[in-house]
Each structure stands twice: as C-alpha cells, then as structure tokens.
C-alpha cells in the first residue's frame, strides 16, 4: 500500500520536474530572476558603479524586521534586531525580539551566542559551504566589490527610476538546503530588503528600516 503510494508520488514528481525542465530549460526552479549572460563592458562599469554606491549606505547600523517562511511551519516566524557591517569582513546580526541572540561573523568564524540558552558556539564557515556562500556574497555587496560578487554569483540588476532589484544566483550549486538565490531590493542608494531563498523552499525576508539618524 505504502509502496504503491510512493510509486504514484514519484510519477507525479517526475511530471512536475519534467514540466519545469521543458518550460524553463535555462534555470533551476528558484524564486529569483533567471540568470543572464555576463553583462557587456558598459553594463559592467554600470554595475561596478551601482554596487559601489550601494556600499556607502550599508556602513551604519540598521534595524530590521525578519519574517521566516518554512515548509515545517504553518505560519511564519518573526524576529527583530539590528544589523551592522564593519568593513572589511565583520558582520553582526543582533536579534532582540523575541529573544536575545547574536551572530557575529569575523573572517572565517561564525560565533553564535544565545544568553538565555547559555549557548556560545563557534563555527568555521569553510565547514559549511552554503552558509559561507551567503556570507561571502553579503560581504562583497557591502564592500562594494562587484568583482568578488560576480566570482560567487551570477548577478543581474533591474532598474526603475527610483527602485532597483539585484538578483544573486550562486555559481557553485550547493548541496541540499543550500542557498538557492538572494534577492535584494532597494530605492536610490538604500538597501531595503534582503530575501534569502533556500533550496528546500524556505525563505527569509529581512526588511531593513530607514536609516536611524
């Protein structure tokens, strides 16, 4: 009985995947925009300038609201806190609501601290390529380093007069539960949203508040 169920599920999935393959031959099934060929020379210069201008706005501490959607949950979870980047490589995500937690990345180290649970864990990013890719990308972005960003991701940009959208697609396909793609949305020189889509369908949407004075 269960075996029959498994078979029928497998057949169903093969149709779905086959369909995706037929209709979207150029991409994986990810939530961000499809890959584009490498930009032309003028476009590359534009991209460089754009990424650089973006870097200026990320240097200060920003408060954030994060919503996390998971296939394990019926409703999303919320977190609030601050995010700060200190060039060249220190990234601090400090969660204040619902519980105090902090994630401090320096160099290759990720330090996770949770005072209420008495947790203090150190990880080496090299051990976890999916996480390393994500952090590498964010650092390159905040440093305004378009070249580095393009070493790790396929980068595509779309503009309107005020708003912009940046799509990052990892160049090395990650193991399961890796990063599928990152979508960054902003206005003028300000980054507003960081959306991280995971390969398992989970996604986090982190909205950065307007610059605190």
């Amino acid at each position: 009985m269960t075996f029959g169920k498994q078979i029928s599920r497998a057949i169903l999935w093969s149709f779905v995947w086959g369909g995706l393959f037929l209709f979207e031959p150029l991409s994986h099934s990810h939530a961000c925009k499809t890959t584009q060929p490498l930009p032309l020379k003028e476009e590359q210069a534009d991209l460089n300038r754009f990424i650089k201008s973006l870097a200026q706005s990320t240097l200060r501490e920003r408060t954030f609201h994060e919503t996390y959607y998971s296939h394990m949950l019926t409703t999303p979870t919320h977190k609030e806190g601050t995010l700060v980047f200190q060039p060249p490589d220190r990234l601090v995500k400090h969660v204040q609501i619902p519980t105090e937690e902090s994630f401090i990345v320096t160099g290759d180290n990720l330090l996770y601290e949770n005072p209420s649970r008495e947790i203090s864990l150190t990880f080496s990013l090299q051990e976890f390529p999916a996480l390393a890719t994500l952090i590498d990308g964010l650092r390159a972005l905040f440093n305004g380093d378009a070249e580095r960003l393009q070493q790790v991701f396929f980068v595509s940009v779309s503009h309107t007069t005020d708003a912009w959208e940046l799509n990052l697609l990892p160049k090395t396909p990650n193991e399961e539960d890796g990063v599928d793609c990152i979508r960054l949305v902003g206005e003028h020189a300000f980054l507003r949203t960081i959306e991280i889509h995971e390969t398992n369908g989970d996604r986090s949407i982190l909205v950065l508040d307007r610059q605190t004075p």
Binding site: M72, L73, T77, F103, N114, E127, E176
Partner: peptide
C-alpha cells in the same frame, strides 16, 4: 521553542534538517 528559534537562524543547515 528552541528549535523554532534555530530554524530561522543563519546556522549550518544540519540544525534545521534534524528538527523533525
């Protein structure tokens, strides 16, 4: 409650994978 916290964290994937 702890697992719910871990889930949304930028922690290595195995933390999430083993939750169920």
């Amino acid at each position: 409650e702890h697992r719910l916290q871990d889930m949304a964290n930028p922690l290595p994937a195995f933390f999430k994978k083993q939750i169920p």
